[in-house]
Computed example of a mutant assay.
Amino acid sequence: MTDSLDKPDTLMNSAASIAAERTLGIALVSASAVAFGLTGVLTKSIHADPLTITCWRGFVGSILITLYVLWRRRRSGGRESLQLGWRGWLLAVEGAAASIAFISAFKFTYVANVVVIYATAPFITALLAFVLVREPFRAQTLVASAVSLCGVAIMVGSGFGSGHLFGDGLALLMTAGSALYMIMVRAFRDTPVVWAGAVSAFLLFVFGWFVTDPLAVSARDAVLLVAFGGSFAAASILWTEGSRLIPAPESGLLGAAEVPFAILFAFLFLGEIPPTASLAGGAIVLCAVFAHAGRDWLVARKRAATP
């Protein structure tokens, strides 16, 4: 009799625990979107060149992410491997190259252009996955890709003769690199991805140290550079922890909030207002991104609700 009375309480406690985990996951992923949204503002606020910025960002970020990885490894009793192998090193090098293009893009074009172009990464990932590994390409993704491509074309087209075309090109290159990185992460499932990210950040530090003079920065820039490395590490850790607690479609939808946050921060802290063509193209891309992610989220919720 006691067991039957305890069972509803157990179910209620389990449901409450699941709800609490989901709430925490939503909060962490949302916080990561805010932290990632600061990238453009911090990059443009620092007077140093892009390689110096990536060097310092890599130095601070690699230390903090390494501490996080070691903490997780200790919690798991040493079960999480730190052996990268050639796949992990390939991830690290490719991620470092994409990061250099990412930071450089902010220096040569509007923050809005970079983050909106980067928002098309899931579609480029789907296209590359179809071409490289013959992964099925969903009809809704094809439609969303076509719509977002129109938006990007409007944004990039507005860069002709304005001096922003190079930055837009770097943003496109970075997005393609990020898409390839996502495919590699899926293909190399046994590779410690977060640890590879820490190594990637350290590679940026080593590369920057030899090709630039990272110590030749003002005190103001030094403070901002340390803050930049800290925000990068915090965003990565928050997203990693939060995405473990919520379904992938929900994580993707919340992560896309980075775009409006970045544009808002650029307006508030830099007074940056992109031209009408960029705003129009960006609106088209964002509609495609949120509609695609939102549909996946609704489908996932229906499946979860189905007994």
Rank of each mutant, 00 (worst) to 15 (best):
S45Q: 05
R134T: 14
P275G: 12
A305G: 08
M12R: 14
L298S: 12
A293W: 05
G169M: 05
A112R: 06
M155S: 10
V223D: 00
R295F: 14
G159H: 05
S4E: 11
G85H: 04
F106R: 10
A266N: 09
L286G: 12
F166V: 09
I65D: 07
L42D: 02
P122V: 08
V143Y: 12
V60S: 05
A27C: 09
T52E: 06
A288K: 06
S17H: 09
G177K: 00
T175Y: 02
F290T: 11
V131R: 13
W89P: 01
V206R: 00
A19K: 10
R57Q: 14
G197M: 04
S32A: 15
G40K: 02
R74K: 13
S231T: 14
T23Q: 13
V116M: 14
K44Q: 12
A277Y: 11
S148N: 10
L225C: 00
L91T: 06
A33M: 02
G25L: 03
A300Q: 05
L224N: 01
D9F: 12
G85R: 03
H292Y: 14
A280N: 08
Q140S: 15
G197Y: 00
C55A: 15
P249E: 08
C150Y: 13
V193K: 01
I263W: 05
M182G: 04
A288W: 10
R79L: 12
G58L: 06
T52L: 04
A256L: 12
G271Y: 11
F210P: 00
L51E: 06
A112F: 09
V93F: 10
G85F: 07
G294R: 07
T66H: 07
L28K: 02
A35T: 06
W89S: 02
H47C: 08
F210E: 02
V133E: 15
H292W: 10
A256C: 11
G95S: 09
V217P: 00
A222F: 03
T109Q: 10
G58F: 07
D6R: 07
S218T: 04
S158Y: 13
A139G: 11
G230R: 01
L5H: 06
L84N: 05
A96T: 11
A262R: 07
A126S: 15
L279D: 12
R72P: 05
G77Y: 06
G161L: 08
P247W: 04
E272R: 11
E250A: 14
S76M: 04
K302W: 09
L67P: 07
R57W: 08
A201H: 02
F102M: 14
E272N: 13
V185K: 03
G282K: 09
L149D: 08
L254G: 04
V29K: 01
F207S: 01
V217H: 00
G242D: 03
E80I: 13
A305Q: 10
W89Y: 11
P122R: 12
V199W: 00
H292T: 08
G255D: 06
R134K: 15
T2C: 02
R186Y: 01
T54F: 11
G58N: 10
G281V: 12
G255L: 07
R79M: 13
L91A: 05
A256E: 09
Y110G: 07
V131T: 13
F228Y: 10
T306Y: 06
A119C: 12
F207V: 05
V285S: 08
A92V: 02
